[in-house]
Design a protein around this nucleic acid. Structure first.
Lengths: 101, 101
DNA sequence: TAAAGTAGTTACCTTTGCGTAACTATCAAA
DNA sequence: TTTGATAGTTACGCAAAGGTAACTACTTTA
């Protein structure tokens, strides 16, 4: 478990994996699909996920350049887990009580 | 998903939940069961997990004091997910290549 | 020649996560 | 009166995570 969390224990990486659950995506698409993430964190997270064998980076030698990101087998094995996590929130989420000022 | 990760997206919280999957535990037990965690992070993580309705803190008015932590229903719903995460690592973990010096 | 599109990078800064070590409070037992 | 046990807290600081804004490189199109 400690090793799993060493790889995934950040705010954004599971979200990136979840976003790639049913599609490949280009860098710019990920940036648009994932709200509030900065390009910098997206870059570094993708790089680390690639090093950990979860994401595959495919570069097309075209102009303008195109790069596609997809999950590896190891990454795909996480899809059901990420989906359950999303579902867990839907079941148990409660609106925070409104503040009376 | 962003909300799930807002709650769980740290290195230690999922490990705490995983440790509580099959037992209640006292503060000192958690500290002993979870290797390398500091008491400070344990304290603050437990406090936040309690605020988020995942962990229940039960204080016994005894001497010396006793406090037990257990998962709520919301927390118990995470058990299968955490177990799958642990299993995922067992299946896909590879020893890092030894460095030749 | 300038603008537009893709996939980043770089510099700089703030916040959060986390660690270590020492300290507190309470009461019982030695 | 000192020690021991439990469950923390406090002070201090480092490193990682994360954000913003500006900049790069390349080539096509206007």
């Amino acid at each position: 478990m400690q090793r799993s969390m060493g790889i995934l224990g950040t705010r954004w990486k599971p979200i990136i994996i979840y976003t790639l659950r049913d599609r490949k995506a280009r860098f710019g698409q990920l940036d648009a699909l994932i709200e509030n993430i900065s390009r910098k964190v997206l870059t570094s997270s993708l790089k680390e996920l690639e090093e950990d064998g979860i994401v595959l980076r495919e570069e097309f030698k075209e102009l303008p350049p195109r790069v596609e990101y997809a999950l590896t087998e190891k990454g795909k094995a996480l899809i059901p887990i990420m989906c359950q996590l999303a579902k867990w929130n839907e079941e148990y989420y409660e609106e925070p009580a409104p503040l009376i000022l």
